[in-house]
Design a protein around this nucleic acid. Structure first.
Lengths: 137, 137
DNA sequence: CTCTTACCTACTTTGTCAATAGGTAAAACA
DNA sequence: TGTTTTACCTATTGACAAAGTAGGTAAGAG
């Protein structure tokens, strides 16, 4: 498993917000209910998205969350790397090359690195706008 | 993380055995010591490889494990799928399409399916022989 | 019949993910 | 002013799987 619920929920929230446009602020409660996600759990995810500047947040009545870029401005890779922490496919590549004592003679390491790059390129090549377009196919 | 220690250990064992050729049987103890893997833990991995017919096993003195095909006959994908159970990148794609109630309207599902296929093709396109050749680069 | 090896069943430990609990701070509104 | 609505913060719990351990039995060679 390379993407947990955290990243998938984040992606769904971002898709939801992009469908709502950049006008209104959407309260967390509405997002959670519409998407069937635990309100409390979603709080932790929104906090990450907000801190990183992926969404604007406003307190009080009429407040909530809102995208601050057009959907083309968000890559899936950016959202997932932020919420998941990393998209590394094996623990060998999460830390630096010194992490594994066998790195110098490991026959598989180049393969893991190529895989990581392939996955990264894959996710960086998809934007929120691409996901929105997907449903019409 | 898409590949755990189980799959990585299995891969290392297979590389080790392929370097030893198809002549001798190599006892588990030797593999574990050479590769720095817990002997007991490796037992469970070898049992899987043996049951699936990936290696030949012989009891008693002079016994151990041995490959029964040339290195080109093993794909990394085959070894990993056997030992990891699955290489699915998200839980959405591990079970059938009915697993997620939102599958029918999920904007991300086609993306996950493309990713799964990409990863599968990647691993199926690499054989043990390719890994062995890697070190000379 | 003893030694060496694979094979089997069950348990423990550890760590992360997912979710929950119970608050405080900011902004709007009456 | 104070009440409601919202975001934001810190800590804890529960579930589960991954990683590793323990203690055996069965097969085969010498």
């Amino acid at each position: 498993m390379i993407v947990s619920t955290k990243g998938r929920y984040a992606l769904r929230v971002m898709v939801y917000l992009s469908q709502k446009g950049e006008e209104d602020y959407i309260p967390l409660k509405e997002i959670a209910e519409s998407e069937g996600i635990s309100q409390k759990y979603l709080e932790t995810i929104m906090a990450v998205l907000s801190k990183a500047g992926f969404v604007d947040a406003v307190h009080g009545k009429g407040g909530g969350y809102r995208l601050n870029r057009p959907p083309e401005g968000y890559t899936v890779g950016g959202i997932l790397k932020l919420t998941e922490g990393s998209l590394a496919t094996v623990s060998c590549t999460t830390q630096g090359p010194a992490a594994c004592s066998r790195a110098s003679c490991c026959q598989a390491l180049p393969m893991w690195e190529r895989l990581d790059k392939m996955v990264d390129d894959f996710f960086e090549g998809i934007t929120l706008a691409d996901l929105l377009a997907e449903q019409e196919k």
